[in-house]
Design a protein around this nucleic acid. Structure first.
Lengths: 213, 213
DNA sequence: ATGTTGCAGCCTACCGAGTAGTATGTTTGG
DNA sequence: CCAAACATACTACTCGGTAGGCTGCAACAT
């Protein structure tokens, strides 16, 4: 009864892999990639390094996996609002709210990806690591592109000021991603309280682009 | 002629200390605190670890010094606009432009402080380190407070929407600090080009707070 | 029902590389 | 010639990665 969980899942081992991934995300969030030892990650789940190396081939692969999951969570969170048939203003507002609530609810993953990854492997990277890096970078770009496109839509419709969408997306993403840096989870925080924070930030970024009247 | 520079300075050794500090900022920017060895920092100035330990007592102290300088540069950059007798809107705009140009011109320091420091020393800190941490945190808070105060001024004067100034300062700072993450220095970039980026970001954060008409 | 066997899923012990900090030697300008 | 300003050599320690061993469940044979 102890070590299964792959009974009904199509992908065996998936649960254990995610347990490890969650532990890694928490550890990387607190101490960063370089300062986190795999011994501490495995401690987090009451296990040893051997367990990690059974599921992941290296520390870098584990790090990339955290990034990948964070990016996929983000894409899943913001895409619905992006695809909603509505004004650019409302779509962007919905994306920003969803994005911020995601940050609050999955802080470890989102804080890790907000820290970036290029920093950690300017050198000493082998072939497969560089491929994974490019892969994760593509996911990040895909998320950014959703924002760029909605900005362009708003400019085209006249809702937003005439800005360079690629450039304007930068402070927008900064405002959103920064939440992962200052937000501190509170034990009994209600969903309504989270929503209020998210709305406030969404209002800010939408207003930053809208025309004055 | 090689190792002086304290001839006219009130503070002896100041030049060499700053050389080391600059090298440390560049190294920390590229690889982060934990992944940067002091051997690499000293390589950066064609020296060895002994030189660093002559001027700084530990790696942590050097890291704190980088943060402190970054905070002081920021304070020096934004305070003039803050104190200008003008509308809250114009003061904030001036602060944001100055802030962004500072980021561009002193990228190593600003990127390091945008990465944060609490992360790196949750444990294993001695007494003096905790004192320095509190000190740097106070500087950070002082910078944030300038933005909070100008937001409050704008709300009071009716220029800005009725926002919670402390909360609204978060995405604002995120939008500004994020520049240190995406900006890549280009060799022949003109001052006018930098200014254009800074104006764009300043427009964004000011519009994020202003009333619609 | 009961032994037997195979292998997934770990754990343990270890190695080698890298690094913060220190102790001591060395140079050079005044 | 002496101290400031380093350089060099060394120690103690951490940590990524690996090799090999252990264990308990499961599936089959009897």
């Amino acid at each position: 009864m102890s070590k299964l969980g792959k009974i009904e899942t199509g992908e065996p081992l998936a649960d254990r892999r995610i347990d490890i991934l969650d532990a890694a995300a928490r550890a990387f969030m607190r101490q960063g990639f370089a300062a986190t030892s795999l011994d501490r990650v495995s401690d987090e789940i009451g296990s040893t390094k051997g367990a990690i190396y059974y599921y992941y081939r290296s520390k870098s692969e584990l790090f990339f996996a955290v990034h990948r999951r964070g990016m996929e969570l983000t894409q899943a969170a913001i895409r619905p609002s992006f695809e909603t048939p509505a004004s650019a203003r409302d779509r962007l507002h919905g994306m920003a709210v969803a994005h911020t609530i995601l940050v609050i609810d999955h802080l470890p993953y989102l804080r890790v990806i907000a820290q970036g990854l290029e920093m950690h492997l300017l050198e000493r990277t082998n072939e497969s690591e560089r491929a994974e890096l490019a892969d994760v970078a593509a996911l990040r770009e895909a998320n950014e592109n959703l924002y760029i496109r909605v900005i362009k839509d708003g400019v085209a419709s006249g809702e937003f000021r005439s800005v360079d969408a690629k450039l304007a997306a930068k402070p927008l993403l900064g405002a959103l991603n920064w939440t992962s840096r200052w937000y501190q989870p509170r034990p009994g925080e209600t969903q309504a309280a989270k929503k209020r924070v998210a709305e406030s930030i969404a209002d800010f970024v939408v207003a930053g682009l809208e025309k004055k009247n």
